[in-house]
């Protein structure tokens, strides 16, 4: 399991560095702009004049003068969406992408159990997400002391924990869907669409109370964003982690019992949606 863990983490290093450095640079930029933004006269009045329909999608915190409001508006309110793109890609492709490429066939012909492979890869995905978030946290916590934000490293860390739980839900959803749907790309795309839809629904629910019961059934409702700087709702985070665990167990059960596919093989087809590459691959196989 540890060999697979290390191997997969190494394969993900490019993504970890790319996403982590990107998030960190953005964090550094925002932390360095805090004092400047706070000094801009009339900014708060400008924000207050924005229509509520617009502000609903930025976490609903409009007090930019407070560290919580600043971090929530400029970072945490949409980081689920941004880092979520990486996470659903990683989750959807964790096993199914290599299976579709025919790589898993040979890997599993070695003395490595399916449980070992699954656990090793899953842990590498979790580690990759944690490392990306760690770089994001460092970008706030290290230079934060030299600004008037006035938060401790622990206060910077707190909102990253619910963000991690949130990302794990969507990463594990993509992993689960990759075991159900015919292709890893479809799993990634569907998870990404659900992530985006959840973000939109959350914003709309702030404008329309009738959507409240629906949005309560979605993971993002239980995301605290910058509000977690002072106190984490551990119940919400635990609930999200349990949901991620349930999806992981579901994915494991499906992976354990399935036939490992060879290159170009799909588990099932959506009628009428047969792609060109699949048709040509089939033609090649027939010709061969």
């Amino acid at each position: 399991m540890m060999i697979e863990y290390k191997h997969n983490l190494r394969r993900m290093r490019g993504q970890i560095i790319g996403w982590g450095v990107g998030i960190a640079l953005y964090g550094l930029m925002m932390v360095s702009l805090y004092d400047t933004i706070n000094r801009i006269e009339g900014l708060q009045q400008l924000i207050d004049s924005y229509p509520p329909e617009f502000m609903a999608f930025f976490g609903g915190m409009t007090d930019l003068s407070s560290p919580q409001g600043y971090l929530d508006t400029y970072f945490f309110s949409y980081m689920t969406l941004i880092i979520g793109i990486f996470v659903v890609g990683a989750g959807g492709g964790l096993l199914a992408a290599d299976e579709e490429r025919g790589i898993l066939d040979l890997v599993l012909a070695h003395p490595l159990s399916r449980a070992g492979l699954f656990a090793g890869r899953f842990l590498s995905m979790v580690t990759a997400i944690v490392l990306v978030l760690l770089l994001g946290w460092l970008s706030w916590a290290v230079p934060g002391g030299s600004t008037t934000l006035g938060l401790s490293w622990l206060q910077y860390l707190r909102p990253f924990l619910p963000l991690l739980a949130q990302l794990l839900v969507f990463g594990c959803l993509a992993l689960f869907l990759s075991m159900v749907l015919p292709a890893s790309r479809i799993a990634g795309m569907l998870s990404g669409a659900l992530l985006f839809a959840n973000f939109l629904l959350l914003g709309l629910a702030k404008l329309n109370d009738k959507l409240e019961p629906v949005v309560k059934l979605t993971p993002m409702y239980y995301y605290e964003g910058g509000k977690a700087i002072n106190q984490i709702n551990w119940g919400w985070s635990a609930g999200l982690l349990l949901a991620a665990l349930a999806l992981t167990v579901g994915a494991w059960v499906l992976f354990k019992g399935r036939d490992i596919r060879v290159a170009g093989e799909r588990s099932w087809r959506i009628p009428g949606l047969r792609g060109r590459s699949e048709r040509s691959a089939r033609a090649d196989r027939q010709a061969g």
């Binding site: 490429r101 025919g102 790589i103 066939d105 040979l106 599993l108 012909a109 070695h110 003395p111 490595l112 060879v262 290159a263």
Partner: peptide, 13 residues
């Protein structure tokens, strides 16, 4: 698998 060497028909690395 510990005692077997395997070469798949369609090798992908």
């Amino acid at each position: 698998r510990a005692r077997t060497g395997y070469l798949p028909g369609e090798l992908n690395l």
